[in-house]
Design a protein around this nucleic acid. Structure first.
Length: 598
RNA sequence: GGGGGCGUAGCUCAGUUGGUUAGAGCGCUGCCCUGUCACGGCAGAGGUCGCGGGUUCGAGUCCCGUCGCUCCCGCCA
């Protein structure tokens, strides 16, 4: 017999009854009845009940066992007595009658019980991650993650993509997030940077003629964390393709995303054909460039209904500035004062002066609420008809400069949808967001900036783009880039673009943002040179692996789908990272510390 | 860098307008228990109430500061 086990804890069935078996694992739960003692033995594969009575020579030792001790148990497999079967367990018809126990690894008193599904503080969980990972839900999430990544790889390879590895120690990239730096021993005073993404490498792979690239790529960014943004490091499904249009990228990526989600979503429906929503439309309808389409609310511009109306606050704003607009947020089933008032106080809690509303109820089909009285039944009814609202519904209004109030209107739409139960939770609603602006106005520095990354191709014929005059600001700020996002249930899963592969367009693009050729050469010299020796048109995308897994596991925090995550302050509490370096290490790296006073 | 929430037993949490000896469940220790699967019963140990200062006759409770965790804003092309 094998030194440790003849069967795993998930393997034994009725067909094995009568066999002498050997199982090993963790004592999940022990029930000591004095004259009879049960041990639920757990391993990666499942749970098997082992039982001992005073006739067993192992009984005395069994009484000493505690939760999470690792033991090896020998015994005979037998059928459970009639009426004591456990239908919850696949192994629930049988049990091991213990003849011998060997303790392979005792456990100290647990800071975090494995049994049960109680919640524990993040700090404890991270410090004892190995215990936390034994727990059913986290264990399942991690296995699910692996299966999802396997499926993604298979689908990418089936799509004709090939997996490449790119350097981890590379050069600092001047745009974007803060880099993690690694000091060079051989070159005093110089540093490597960890890649924020293999962006330039994957483009170089296209220039090198490889055509269809992908990688489950680690990315490193020294920025502050969020629930859906790991500090330090995360993984992307990095993709790049040559000789493609935007539509080609969509056609390659959409089936992979849909396929993976359909495979792992359980019974939840997945969008059959991802709609394409222009960036500007997304802002107008949903107040965000990452809309949750499970929420059916679409906002509408109702400025004209308030122009010259009796509601002087809005009317005066509209007269005072031609850029002022009034947006309506329809709230089906929200037609009662209690709800409207609650939303109003919520808005005040968000730092808004309030949230104007109209609601329609039996006998007041012309609209109720102070706002309705001010603008009169005619305008009220026009709004109601325009938004296809009825008795029992309400409508909220935000006014001002859209650029400023979308940051409130978007969350208000979300809040209203959730409060009224309009959001259909059990589904995955995808969309493409397209036509992102190429540039934006930087109010602080009074200049034009890239609005996304500088590698995207402007969506304009090359000659026309090259002919742009810097003074033609309106045209420049209205320019779209061939840049796109995938959004699912309000989560931005990825961002991509058709790249700018023409050196002269690249130079022009940087010139518009106020960067001379010297800057371009210094920042992206390698890239620029590569484009000068025959670069194919190419483009790609990079869906976030961790976020995909998070959605598919039904989790709201990335730490639930990462084996060994860092905490919000980018510390690994289990391994103790980051840690101080020894004087010798620092000397070798030519580094002298200059720590902050305190 | 800024804002909100939290911090009480190993763990999860309760703790009334500030008032006697700070409680419960899980876990731990000991005893009882031969069909449990959240086994049950009895007894017990375990607390600088995050830390420092203040108000008060009296502070877990109120105030100020500080530290830690978490969520958010900034940031994340």
């Amino acid at each position: 017999m094998h030194r440790y086990r003849s069967h795993t804890c998930g393997a034994l069935r009725e067909g094995d009854i009568g066999k002498d078996v050997r199982v090993a694992g963790w004592c999940h739960r022990i029930r000591d009845h004095g004259g009879l003692l049960f041990i639920d033995l757990r391993d990666h594969y499942g749970l098997t009940q082992c039982v001992a009575d005073p006739d067993s020579p192992a009984f005395k030792l069994a009484e000493k066992l505690r939760a999470e001790w690792v033991v090896k148990i020998d015994g005979k497999l037998r059928k459970r007595p009639a009426g004591t079967e456990n239908p919850e367990l696949p192994t629930g018809l049988v049990e091991v009658f213990i003849s011998e126990i060997e303790v392979l690894g005792a456990a100290a008193e647990l800071p975090l019980p494995v049994f049960g599904d109680q919640e524990y503080p993040e700090e404890t969980r991270l410090q004892y991650r190995f215990l936390d990972l034994r727990r059913e839900r986290l264990h399942a999430n991690i296995m699910n993650r692996g299966a999802i990544i396997d499926s993604i790889r298979r689908r990418m390879k089936d799509g004709g993509f090939f997996e490449f590895q790119t350097p981890i120690l590379t050069a600092s990239s001047p745009e974007g997030a803060r880099d993690y730096l690694v000091p060079s021993r051989i070159h005093p005073g110089k540093f490597y940077a960890l890649p924020q993404a293999p962006q330039q490498f994957k483009q170089l792979i296209m220039v090198a003629g490889f055509d269809r690239y992908f990688q489950i790529a680690p990315c490193f960014r020294d920025e502050d964390a969020r629930a859906d943004r790991s500090p330090g490091e995360f993984y992307q499904l990095d993709i790049e393709m040559s000789f493609v249009t935007q539509q080609d990228v969509f056609d390659a990526v959409e089936p992979v995303m849909r396929g993976v989600f359909e495979e792992f979503s359980g019974d939840k429906p997945v969008t059959k054909k991802f709609p394409m929503i222009p960036y500007a439309d997304a802002l107008r309808k949903y107040g965000t460039d990452k809309p949750d389409l499970r929420n059916p609310i679409e906002m509408a511009n109702v400025t004209e209904s308030f122009r010259g109306s009796g509601f002087k606050i809005f009317a005066n704003m509209i007269v005072g500035d031609p850029k002022v607009e009034v947006w309506a947020i329809p709230a089906r089933k929200g037609g009662n004062r209690a709800f409207c008032d609650r939303m109003n106080s919520w808005a005040q809690g968000e730092g808004q002066p309030g949230l104007g509303y109209i609601f329609w109820r039996e006998g007041e089909e012309g609209g109720a609420g102070p706002l309705a009285k001010n603008i009169g039944p005619e305008r009220t009814t026009a709004i109601r008809d325009r938004l296809k609202l009825a008795v029992g519904d309400a409508c909220f209004f935000v006014a001002g400069l859209p650029k400023q109030f979308v940051k409130f209107a978007g969350p208000a739409r979300t809040k209203i949808g959730e409060e009224l139960g309009l959001v259909q939770k059990d589904r995955f609603d995808f969309c493409w967001i397209v036509d992102f602006p190429m540039y934006e106005w930087n109010e602080e520095d009074k200049k034009i900036d890239f609005s996304h990354n500088p590698f995207s191709m402007p969506n304009l014929p090359v000659e026309e783009f090259l002919a742009l005059d810097a003074s033609d600001q309106d045209k420049i700020l209205g320019l779209k880039a061939i840049q796109y996002d995938i959004v699912c249930n309000g989560v931005e899963l990825s961002s991509g673009a058709i790249r700018n592969h023409r050196p002269e367009v690249m130079k022009k693009a940087f010139a518009i943002a106020g960067y001379g050729e010297d800057v371009l050469e210094k920042k992206f010299g390698g890239m620029l040179r590569a484009l000068q020796y025959g670069a194919p048109p190419h483009g790609g995308i990079a869906p976030g692996i961790d976020r995909i897994v998070m959605l598919l596991c039904g989790e709201e925090n990335l730490r639930e789908v990462v084996l060994f995550p860092m905490n919000q302050r980018a510390e690994d509490l289990l391994m103790g990272a980051p840690s101080e370096a020894t004087p010798k290490q620092l000397r070798e790296l030519h580094i002298r510390l200059n720590l902050p006073q305190k």
